[in-house]
Lab assay of single mutants.
Amino acid sequence: MMAYMNPGPHYSVNALALSGPSVDLMHQAVPYPSAPRKQRRERTTFTRSQLEELEALFAKTQYPDVYAREEVALKINLPESRVQVWFKNRRAKCRQQRQQQKQQQQPPGGQAKARPAKRKAGTSPRPSTDVCPDPLGISDSYSPPLPGPSGSPTTAVATVSIWSPASESPLPEAQRAGLVASGPSLTSAPYAMTYAPASAFCSSPSAYGSPSSYFSGLDPYLSPMVPQLGGPALSPLSGPSVGPSLAQSPTSLSGQSYGAYSPVDSLEFKDPTGTWKFTYNPMDPLDYKDQSAWKFQIL
């Protein structure tokens, strides 16, 4: 009977010793046993002879290597770790002494450095960015050149030099007046198309007034536009458009034309069986010896 009264063996659950049927240790109110408190290391007290050895090595170098620390530790009968900690504390003490010396050398008012006064946003004049500046400075420094007289040679050079070769001289006033084509001369031969040399188009003023001019072949195509416009036809070669000034309004060009419109200028042929003959000019830059190549039959 006494065997049943004795408590059973101890069981360990999660490293906790349980005594038989008792489960009081598993209750929430019972805390787990805490780790033992780490003991504080005792402070090391250095003797005068030990301090002399350490100070002598510190005077040589503030960062001794492990071999120098072990050698000193053997002399003063201390572990190497204590020597390492002593050098660490000695360097910190040396830095603190240097900072105190710097503070003593500075004057009393030198510690508080005078800061520059901050400028207020409204006091300083700042350039306004509302208006974009002129990058080319046209509004201040540029002045347009004065327009020359209508009959000045410089204007003629600016007008005619675009179309004339570089080897030719500017046309005088008398020749510029001949550039304007007359109405009857352009409409006299509506079906004849003559190819003149390129030099005649640039230099010869008579080429624009003769039936064999460069633009005589364009007349049949330009004249039928007159009834559609409801007024006189516009002429690209009329009046002052080739003269001194090219800047004319469309209203000033509306009254200039080749001449009176005639039914002869239409595109319809009077004789459907007729042929169109292209007159060959020996001055043509295209060297075609066979003139029969310039004739064709309209079917």
Rank of each mutant, 00 (worst) to 15 (best):
E52Y: 07
V13G: 01
L54F: 11
L229Q: 01
G178K: 12
K60E: 05
H10S: 05
D65V: 15
M2A: 00
S238M: 07
S206A: 06
P9Q: 04
I298G: 00
L54S: 15
A260S: 08
Y191F: 09
L16G: 01
A156H: 03
I298V: 02
A166Y: 09
Q228A: 10
Y191E: 00
R98H: 05
R126I: 04
S241V: 09
Q28I: 14
G148Q: 04
S188E: 06
Q101D: 12
G20Q: 07
D140E: 06
M193K: 02
S150W: 10
G230P: 04
P220I: 15
I298L: 02
N14F: 14
D265H: 13
T273H: 06
A181H: 03
M193C: 03
M5F: 11
R126P: 03
Y11K: 01
Q175N: 05
Q105D: 03
S262H: 05
V13R: 08
P244F: 14
A189K: 05
P79H: 07
Q99C: 04
S266M: 10
A189T: 03
P285S: 07
S254R: 08
S161C: 14
Q62K: 08
A3K: 07
L218P: 00
P165K: 05
F269W: 04
P282C: 11
A247P: 04
R69P: 15
P135R: 09
L16R: 02
V157N: 01
P285M: 08
S199F: 11
K277Q: 02
D24I: 13
Y214P: 01
S182F: 12
E173Q: 09
S182V: 12
P149I: 07
E80L: 09
G231M: 08
E173P: 12
E168M: 12
G231L: 15
L74K: 06
D65Q: 14
F46P: 11
Q297L: 15
G259N: 03
W276V: 00
E52Q: 05
A293H: 07
L222Q: 00
K75L: 07
M225L: 11
K93H: 15
A200V: 11
P7W: 14
L171D: 05
V242L: 07
A68V: 04
S150H: 07
P263V: 12
A181G: 07
I76R: 11
G151N: 05
S167C: 04
I138L: 08
Q28Y: 11
S254V: 10
A56R: 08
M5T: 01
A166K: 09
C132N: 08
P220A: 08
P240L: 12
S210F: 11
S22Q: 10
V85Y: 12
P263K: 13
R119S: 03
G110A: 04
A198V: 10
W86D: 14
E53K: 12
Y221I: 07
Q256W: 15
Y63S: 15
S212P: 11
A17D: 00
S167H: 04
